[in-house]
C-alpha cells in the first residue's frame, strides 16, 4: 500500500508544462525545478516526497521529452489519471515512475486528500470519503520496470550500456 497527499491537475496536462522547451538542454535537477512553472508556479516548492498526482484525461499528452523523469525527480510517489498518454506512459515505465490509469479518479479526490494505492488489489481508496476505485492493472513486465527504477538498470544488468554514477 502506498499513501500520497493529492495534488490535482486537469485534463490534457501536456509534457511541455512538465518540462518546458527552454529546459530541454538543462540538467535533470534544473528540469525538476521547472515543472509546472507556466501553469502552477511554485508547485515544486510545495510538493513533498511521496505525494501523489491525480490527473484527468490524457495525462502527459505531447512530446517524447523525459517529463516523467522530472515528475519522479520532484519526489512524486505515484500518479493516477483517468487516462495516460501512451508516450508519457512509456517514459513512466522507463524512468521508474509509478503511473496508473484509474477511471473516475478525478472526481473521487480533492486536493490535499490522501490517496491510498494498492497495486496488488489494483485499487485506489480515498479514506476521507471511503470510496474505493478500480485501478487498471499495469502488465507485469512493465510494472517490474516501473518499480525497479526503469529500463536503465535492466540494460546495465544485461551489459548493454555502461553504468553511470548518479541517476539517469
Amino acid at each position: 500500500m502506498r499513501n500520497g497527499r493529492v495534488w490535482k491537475f486537469g485534463d490534457n496536462i501536456n509534457t511541455d508544462l512538465m518540462l518546458p522547451g527552454p529546459y530541454l538542454y538543462r540538467s535533470s535537477e534544473q528540469q525538476a525545478r521547472a515543472v509546472f512553472m507556466n501553469n502552477r508556479p511554485g508547485w515544486v516548492d510545495q510538493v513533498q516526497t511521496g505525494d501523489a498526482i491525480v490527473g484527468g484525461f490524457n495525462y502527459g499528452m505531447g512530446s517524447s521529452r523525459p517529463a516523467a523523469r522530472s515528475i519522479r525527480n520532484c519526489g512524486v510517489g505515484f500518479l493516477l489519471a483517468e487516462t495516460i498518454n501512451g508516450l508519457f506512459f512509456r517514459n513512466a515505465v522507463n524512468y521508474g515512475l509509478l503511473a496508473c490509469e484509474c477511471p473516475g479518479v478525478s472526481g473521487a479526490f480533492e486536493e490535499g486528500d490522501t490517496a491510498e494505492l494498492d497495486i496488488e488489489a489494483w485499487t485506489a481508496r480515498n479514506p476521507r470519503t471511503r470510496q474505493t476505485l478500480k485501478v487498471s492493472q499495469v502488465p507485469q513486465q512493465l510494472l517490474e520496470m516501473m518499480l525497479g527504477g526503469g529500463v536503465y538498470p535492466v540494460l546495465e544488468r544485461d551489459g548493454l550500456i555502461a553504468p553511470r554514477v548518479g541517476e539517469p
Binding site: S63, S64, P66, A68, G86, L87, R90, N91, N94, Y95, G150, V151, Y152, V154, L155, D158, L160, I161, P168
Partner: peptide, 15 residues
C-alpha cells in the same frame, strides 16, 4: 511507427 522516449531508444538500439 511510434515515437518513443530516450530510454526506449537505448533499449531498441541495444536489443
Amino acid at each position: 511507427a511510434r515515437g518513443v522516449g530516450g530510454p526506449d531508444m537505448l533499449y531498441a538500439v541495444t536489443t
